[in-house]
Simulated scan of single mutants.
Amino acid sequence: MSEPDPTLPSHLRLRARGTASNAAGRFERETRERFDDGWDLTEEERLLRTEVREEVPRSALTYNRSPDLPFDRSVNPYRGCEHGCVYCFARPSHAFLGLSPGLDFETRLIARPGIADVLARELRAKSYQPGVIALGTNTDPYQPVEARYGLMRQILQVLCDHHHPVAVTTKGTLVERDIDLLSVMAARVQAGVGVSLTTLDPDLARRMEPRCPSPARRLQTIRRLADAGIPVRVMISPLVPGLSDHEAEAILEAAYEAGARRATCIPLRLPREVSGLFQAWLSHHYPDRAAHVMNRVREMHGGRDYDPDFGRRMRGQGLWADLLKARINVALTRLGYDRSPIPLSLEGFRLPSRPGDQLSLF
Rank of each mutant, 00 (worst) to 15 (best):
D161C: 09
R223N: 10
A187F: 00
A205G: 01
P241S: 06
S244D: 08
E209P: 01
P202T: 04
P231Q: 07
I236A: 14
I236Q: 03
I179L: 14
I230E: 03
I155V: 15
E209V: 02
V195H: 12
H162T: 09
H246T: 00
L182K: 04
G242M: 07
L156D: 05
S196E: 09
V175N: 07
A191V: 08
R211W: 10
P213F: 09
Q190S: 03
V166Y: 06
P213L: 12
L219V: 08
R218C: 02
L219F: 01
L174Q: 14
G242H: 03
T221M: 14
A191N: 05
T199E: 11
A187H: 08
A205C: 09
H164I: 06
K171V: 11
G172W: 06
P238N: 05
V168S: 10
I179D: 00
P213M: 08
Q154F: 12
V240R: 00
E209A: 02
T170H: 13
T170A: 14
T170L: 10
L243N: 11
M185P: 04
L182P: 02
P202K: 04
E247T: 02
L243S: 12
L225A: 00
A228Y: 06
G150S: 12
T221C: 07
D203G: 01
D180G: 01
A147S: 15
R148I: 15
R188E: 15
R177V: 12
L181E: 02
V189M: 09
L156I: 07
K171T: 08
L181S: 00
G229H: 03
R148Y: 14
D245V: 01
R217H: 05
M185E: 06
L219S: 07
P202W: 03
P241H: 10
P165A: 12
P238D: 08
P231T: 09
A248H: 03
R223L: 04
R206I: 00
D178I: 10
V232R: 02
R177N: 14
G194S: 13
P238H: 01
A205V: 04
V195N: 11
R217D: 12
L204A: 14
R188S: 13
P215Q: 04
T173S: 14
I155G: 10
A187Y: 00
L182I: 00
R206T: 09
P165C: 08
V184C: 08
R148Q: 15
D161R: 13
C160W: 15
P231A: 09
P210D: 05
Q190L: 06
L225G: 08
R148D: 15
